[in-house]
């Protein structure tokens, strides 16, 4: 199945988001899901233009709001494969509250965050993942805020699939996305995706020196180890940045627990008859 649209990417040449696009395209192609049952939802940002590159359903929504839109879609029709493509500002800044709550609800959404540690579309301000000392247009004297650790946040909020990829390795990233889509429940994939235009600190070279794949010895069912690995960049003064699957566990999804959606997609429940309405009104008599 061809998942591409006729829309051409507008990323700057060399932007990390090209790699993420390639990875998502590959994951979908390998899974071969009917594209009419796929919805790709984004917020606002360079990275959030992603849905337009696909010939699936989807929505390019508001800055920070793709998760609630995606949740509404899943609750309305649990037959849809719902993927969120977003940026670090979108996901960890303005939309951070939604991340916590979708994770604890375990809604079956795969969220891919193109984390370039900068606000790309608004031309280079600091983001919640910018490192201390990072000089950006909004932090000309260097960022003084501790960056968010998205993996640790997602883990503690109850995400059931937590991974990190690197757009410099799209094959590996595609694997993480594919397994995230196959995973039943909320999957967060933080994608290190350099902004070659505005982030002069966290460049491809910078990442290549630091990124390494979690080995076969990492047990993704071990929550404690997952947290430990998630904290490794901070623990090593950003010398070592592991990528791969940090954690995966099984927990019923929100859709499987809700008294209505557990019986099947909401969109397929019948409209009430006038007898049903009368019954609903009965207790007010």
């Amino acid at each position: 199945m061809n998942y591409s649209s006729s829309v051409k990417p507008v990323f700057c040449p060399g932007c990390g988001d090209f790699g993420v696009h390639a990875a998502l395209l590959r994951a979908l192609t390998e899974l071969n899901i009917d594209k009419s049952s796929v919805a790709i939802v984004s917020g606002i940002g360079c990275s959030s233009s992603m849905p337009h590159l696909f010939s699936t359903y989807g929505m390019h929504s508001l800055h920070g709001r793709p998760l609630p839109v995606a949740t509404g879609m899943r609750l309305a029709n649990s037959k849809l494969t719902v993927i969120v493509t977003t940026g670090d500002g979108d996901a960890y800044g303005i939309g951070s509250a939604h991340l916590l709550h979708v994770a604890r609800r375990n809604v079956d959404i795969t969220m891919i965050v193109m984390n370039n540690q900068i606000y790309g579309l608004t031309t280079g301000q600091a983001s919640p993942t910018s490192l201390i000392g990072a000089k950006t247009v909004s932090t000309p004297f260097g960022d003084i805020e501790e960056p968010i650790n998205p993996l640790a946040v997602a883990l503690s909020a109850g995400a059931t699939y937590v991974a990190r990829g690197f757009s410099g390795d799209p094959m590996h990233a595609a694997e993480l996305i594919k397994n995230g889509i196959l995973h039943k429940g909320f999957a967060l994939i933080d994608m290190l995706s350099p902004c070659v235009t505005f982030n002069t600190l966290n460049t491809y070279d910078w990442f290549r020196k630091r990124v390494y794949k979690l080995g076969a010895d990492h047990d993704p069912s071990n929550f404690g180890k997952a947290i430990e690995k998630a904290m490794e960049p901070e623990a090593t003064g950003w010398e070592k940045i592991p990528i791969g699957l940090f954690y995966q566990t099984k927990r019923p999804t929100y859709e499987e627990l809700d008294v209505t959606t557990k019986n099947g997609p909401l969109i397929e429940t019948p409209m009430p008859s006038s007898g049903d309405v009368e019954k609903a009104l009965e207790i007010y008599k």
Partner: peptide, 27 residues
């Protein structure tokens, strides 16, 4: 249990955006 979904949200921003998602999906 009458075949509807009620979702209590983290804030009203989520409430309206979920509503938009559900309506887009045809409900």
């Amino acid at each position: 249990n009458r075949g509807v979904v009620f979702k209590q949200t983290e804030d009203e921003i989520a409430a309206i955006n979920m509503t938009i998602g559900a309506a887009t999906a045809g409900v």
